[in-house]
Amino acid sequence: MNKTIRKLLVFIGSLLPLGWILWKVVRLQSGEWDVLGPEPGRAIVFFTGTWTFVFLLLGLAASTFKRWGVPWLMMHRRMIGLFAFFYATLHLLAYMAFLLEWQWADIASEIIERPYLTFGFAGWALLVPLAFTSLRYWQRKLGKRWKRLHQLAYVVAVLVAVHYLLQIRSNWFEPVLYSSLMAILLLERAFFVLNKRIKTKI
């Protein structure tokens, strides 16, 4: 498949979750009160958070798939990473709008007092410099430091997984599933790096 066409398809596919939730919101505004459940605001927060995790998983899986002989995902990792930041930002804004109702005085105390928010906000904050320096200009300008900076993606992955797991109340399946997939990808990466260093020394 042509690279440009594939890039366009990845871009459109990445926007589909946004289109789906906007369609639900439009239906909600038209009077279909049950389309997002009894707590629409909380449903939007959860939805955007889940898709943030999905894009983080795809970003981490790109290098793993490349090592397994499937390189096309790696070609779009920058776009996938930017969509992870995009949905993470929507997730944060949805939380502030629907659950905190823009009570600015409460935002700082909520982040400090609730561990799951502390981990989640820390993950989002680390995504900011990664998104900002994703352009090739910064890759050239920072040189080797760019690669070290973008290794923060692994830290973000751990923070987001902990953020998700700390929110488990009754429905544990998705948080445990996504976090387990994240752990597998991180362990695969760690094994690859360790194995590479051993071979280099030999």
Rank of each mutant, 00 (worst) to 15 (best):
Y95G: 06
Y95I: 05
Y95C: 04
Y95S: 06
Y95Q: 05
M96D: 13
M96N: 11
A97D: 14
A97R: 14
A97T: 15
F98K: 04
F98V: 09
F98W: 11
L100I: 13
L100D: 03
L100M: 10
E101D: 14
E101L: 14
W102R: 05
W102S: 01
Q103L: 08
Q103G: 10
W104T: 02
W104Q: 08
A105Y: 05
A105C: 01
A105D: 14
A105K: 13
D106K: 15
D106T: 15
D106S: 14
I107L: 10
I107V: 15
A108Y: 04
A108Q: 07
S109L: 13
S109N: 11
E110N: 02
I111F: 01
I112M: 13
R114K: 13
Y116L: 14
Y116H: 15
Y116I: 11
Y116E: 12
L117C: 06
L117T: 02
L117S: 03
T118N: 10
F119K: 03
F119N: 01
G120W: 06
F121T: 10
F121D: 03
A122H: 07
A122C: 06
A122D: 02
G123L: 11
G123W: 12
G123H: 12
W124I: 05
W124L: 08
A125Y: 03
A125S: 12
A125Q: 03
L126Y: 10
L126P: 10
L126G: 11
L127W: 02
L127Q: 03
L127G: 07
V128S: 05
V128M: 11
P129F: 14
P129N: 05
L130M: 08
A131N: 09
A131P: 01
T133L: 07
T133R: 10
